[in-house]
Design a protein around this nucleic acid. Sequence first.
DNA 1: TATGAATGAGTCTTCATTCAT
DNA 2: AATGAATGAAGACTCATTCAT
Lengths: 192, 192, 192, 192
Amino acid sequence: MSHLGYGCLMTVDREQVLRTAAALLSRKATATMDEVARAAGIGRATLHRHFAGRDALVRALEALGIQEFEAAIDQARLHDGTAEEALRRLVAGLEPVAGLLAFLVTENQLFEGDQMNEGWARLDARVSALFRRGQERGEFRIDLTPAWLTEALYGLIGTCAWAVQDGRVAAKDFQYMIVELLLGGARRSVER
Amino acid sequence: MSHLGYGCLMTVDREQVLRTAAALLSRKATATMDEVARAAGIGRATLHRHFAGRDALVRALEALGIQEFEAAIDQARLHDGTAEEALRRLVAGLEPVAGLLAFLVTENQLFEGDQMNEGWARLDARVSALFRRGQERGEFRIDLTPAWLTEALYGLIGTCAWAVQDGRVAAKDFQYMIVELLLGGARRSVER
Amino acid sequence: MSHLGYGCLMTVDREQVLRTAAALLSRKATATMDEVARAAGIGRATLHRHFAGRDALVRALEALGIQEFEAAIDQARLHDGTAEEALRRLVAGLEPVAGLLAFLVTENQLFEGDQMNEGWARLDARVSALFRRGQERGEFRIDLTPAWLTEALYGLIGTCAWAVQDGRVAAKDFQYMIVELLLGGARRSVER
Amino acid sequence: MSHLGYGCLMTVDREQVLRTAAALLSRKATATMDEVARAAGIGRATLHRHFAGRDALVRALEALGIQEFEAAIDQARLHDGTAEEALRRLVAGLEPVAGLLAFLVTENQLFEGDQMNEGWARLDARVSALFRRGQERGEFRIDLTPAWLTEALYGLIGTCAWAVQDGRVAAKDFQYMIVELLLGGARRSVER
DNA sequence: TATGAATGAGTCTTCATTCAT
DNA sequence: AATGAATGAAGACTCATTCAT
């Protein structure tokens, strides 16, 4: 979806470059600036005009990722309706941001809890709160901690985004696969 | 935690070095050879004696990972008993290999389907067959494809291994969290 | 003498770099890439931009050396006039290439006859043919083989080039010293 | 003649190691200690037991070379008889030392005149004096300087030693080829 | 004494970055 | 604004050397 190919000649704006970079860097953290630039259809030096350096690019990715993650959370109205409905809305909103989200998760693996990006920690808490709300409402089991459910959500989103890109899962099934697995699991309910 | 320093005199064998490298590289793909060497308690040059270069190290990690993954699959006797029981055995057997597995998954993301490591593809097929068997036996739902369940298993194992290392999930809960989520999901069963 | 320093702003082209490298490497085969780069007035990384690596540099030197050696042979018209005249023209033409030639000779010492650079073997044959023509015309003695005379020519050119650089032989005497020794030898002719 | 091959198991004494090292290093200055050791039929560490390090090896080579060169000069009695006879004796005596001599020449290329090895400079002067004696006696031409004739002698010895090793000149012709070329040159004397 | 394993020093190579055009 | 050339910094790799056996 965000693959423009190498030959793209049109001027690519900053956000498009960031999305392409996120998709690449979340899959290959060792990608060089040259690879990032070519994936975005621009030259190395031009990439440096947009972002002062690799660090700046990474920070921009984090900022964009957190911004879009936050927007998705806001729009999902996590406090409205059942927790399940809210989760479905959240996953739907996160689909276009999956690449950025996977990048964020990978980046934050490197840090200990204290050094974790502040914005990320805040959003993390909001998602965690959603699962807690579900537990308090009796919708979700309480033997799986909100922290783990949150991590699992991120993991499944990243995994599914990769599976979609590699053609192992159909793009249209993205939300369904994640939500159904996360909420219902693989086991066939007896009486359902 | 795993910094033994230079003075460590005990002979660190090849496999120990590989395990340490897997744990490090699966979390930080950009780790330098120096970091890998120090994490393993040996010098850079000694690391190069064991593995001709970075590529050789990665290939050795892949080989070890596939070997241990295969051993875990063999020992789990995926064809015996219910699919659920087999899956529980498999997850239990994969727990010590989680770091290597996460590394393998990340590495295989870089390849297109055709170029995928042959050994990996074979193991992948065996896990996938387990989920298919569960579906055919009526244990597992059929609206979640075996391919997706397989991917999800890998994703949850990697995610949970990270969460354990970062202290967000208790080590003793590793198997439980993964299997319960994968099989039962977060939703509270009505009558259970 | 040839240290231009880092501040040198003029663009140093590929061929100039090669000539400098040949002069250095033919005298000091163990010279580092850094020494080569500084002798050429450029940085290490820039040297690597021009030549992918040390091997590539050596191959480029061989190619240039063979090319210039061939040009010198062509221009010497080895088949015209007496063999002695042709030899004088050849040595004159080889003077500016002496450094490259010495390098080529040294490099080709490393190979067994079969693996010898093809281009070099061809030029070698042309020089050898010149000495054979001289023998057939009665100009040259026949107890010294063309192969040896060819080798001796290379050896004397390299030796003299070094002697000139070290100030043991005057630069203007280069051709004279080589040709007179090679043709007439040190012995004083009786009746001359 | 001094090639023992790799499989040699007998204890190789210091001098034999040096001769093998000289033969190798004069042809490939970049040879590693490992290559030198294997050419001598011993292990790396054993080579280090014989010679404290690479520098020590090189110094030992220089010392042995100068010693043998001096012995050859002494035995050639350069002051006795005609210069030509003395030169023939000298070349005959230098034949077994050709490898070491080639190494010495190469090494001394690296130094400016002042830093030149003292022992070498002394021997150089004795050879040069031989050529001067030949000029003063009217045996040798005076338009070729003693310094150049000395250099040429070294160059031809090294060149011929290589040519012999590569099979381009017969070993039995070593002395003849060198002396005849150096003294008589390639030109056919008219009245001889 | 001889050897294989280990390693510090130093070279080779690459990459992020800057600069001139 | 965009590009190719140039380069300092840093990582990958090799080699001379040492150590334990």
